[in-house]
């Protein structure tokens, strides 16, 4: 089992070889993680959660390492969560946004990550509006890249913290029914969740308006046994976990939903619908919520909701990812 010393402490000695399960330069998505990789991350996150529960809540394991957050898109929780996680491990943190940096002067993503690498940044967390941008960065720098959300593609640390939260309440997800509802087609959260949930043996159902479902992908069989449906009432029956996604108001302008009113009628996670799920089913949301639209306020803050816990667990999971990536790369 992992042992992490509290700060202040002598520089960490050689780590036990407990992390053979996942050694990687980057974390770009969950699709290439094996069940064993995921298990390693979950176990490490559990240890990090214990660290966070201590009075000081910090260790010096990554002292001397520099982590940069490079955000081309607005974010509150993901960025703050990574920053807190890196600092809790004793790393130094540099925060860069697209506005107020050389990006505004037209610097390319590749040049920016190479500059960060040159000033000694070992890990760069990237949030970008273009799907695939972290892959471009990873292929062009020897710094580790963690995908903090790329366009409508992937958000691996969100999926890992979601899984971590589910496991704490449900235990093993083998055979459990997890329903994700909303704009699946444009959701990086849903996409990354599918891979971790399938690897965990869950039964995954993706529900949403017909215009917002990845139909061709589901039909291709590439999502395993993942089901896709426009009938949320049917989907939620017998669910053990229900995760509502944020609906972007632009979808209405694009004609993908006729109105928010109709969206609410068909797809809002509310108390009536929740009754159709299994007793004790978890209510989740990656945030930020549009309360009263994709989720009713009483459900969002009700007994079944673990939404705030998701945020808290996010720090532990990101500590685990940072820890595994940095120590896994050490010579």
């Amino acid at each position: 089992m992992l042992e992490i010393k509290e700060q202040p402490a002598a520089p960490a000695g050689p780590e036990p070889a407990a992390f053979e399960g996942w050694k990687a330069k980057d974390l770009l998505d969950t699709d290439t993680l094996s069940t064993a990789n995921i298990e390693t991350i979950m176990e490490t996150a559990e240890a990090m959660r214990e660290v966070r529960a201590r009075p000081v809540g910090k260790v010096a394991t990554l002292r001397g390492a520099t982590v940069a957050t490079l955000f081309y898109e607005q974010s509150t929780r993901t960025r703050a969560s990574f920053e807190v996680a890196a600092k809790a491990l004793g790393a130094d943190v540099v925060n860069l946004s697209a506005s107020g940096s050389s990006v505004e002067k037209g610097e390319s993503l590749i040049d920016t990550v190479r500059t960060l690498e040159a000033i000694g940044t070992g890990v760069i967390v990237i949030r970008h509006k273009s799907s695939g941008a972290p892959y471009l960065a990873a292929a062009n720098t020897s710094a580790s890249i963690i995908n903090g959300g790329d366009g409508t593609h992937a958000h691996p640390t969100q999926a890992l913290l979601d899984l971590f939260t589910m496991r704490r309440h449900v235990g093993s997800l083998q055979g459990r029914k997890v329903v994700i509802v909303g704009d699946i087609l444009h959701s990086r959260v849903a996409r990354s969740n599918v891979w971790t949930l399938l690897a965990s043996g869950a039964r995954v159902v993706l529900a949403g308006p017909p215009t917002l479902l990845p139909r061709t992908l589901a039909l291709s069989g590439e999502l395993g046994g993942c089901e896709v449906t426009a009938d949320f009432d049917d989907a939620i029956a017998g669910a053990d976990v229900v995760m509502a996604l944020r609906i972007q108001k632009e979808r209405q302008e694009g004609g993908l939903i006729p109105s928010l009113r109709e969206y609410i009628r068909g797809y809002q996670l509310n108390a009536t619908r929740l009754k159709r799920a299994n007793p004790g089913a978890l209510v989740m949301h990656p945030g930020p919520m549009n309360e009263g639209i994709e989720i009713a306020p009483d459900v969002a803050h009700g007994l079944a909701s673990v939404i705030e816990e998701q945020v808290a667990n996010g720090v532990a999971v990101r500590m685990a990812v940072l820890y595994l990536i940095v120590t896994g790369r050490a010579p």
């Binding site: 799907s131 695939g132 409508t152 061709t216 590439e222």
Partner: peptide, 11 residues
Amino acid sequence: NEGRISERLGL
């Protein structure tokens, strides 16, 4: 192309 790969890659 709109289809399996675009949906997979979020493009």
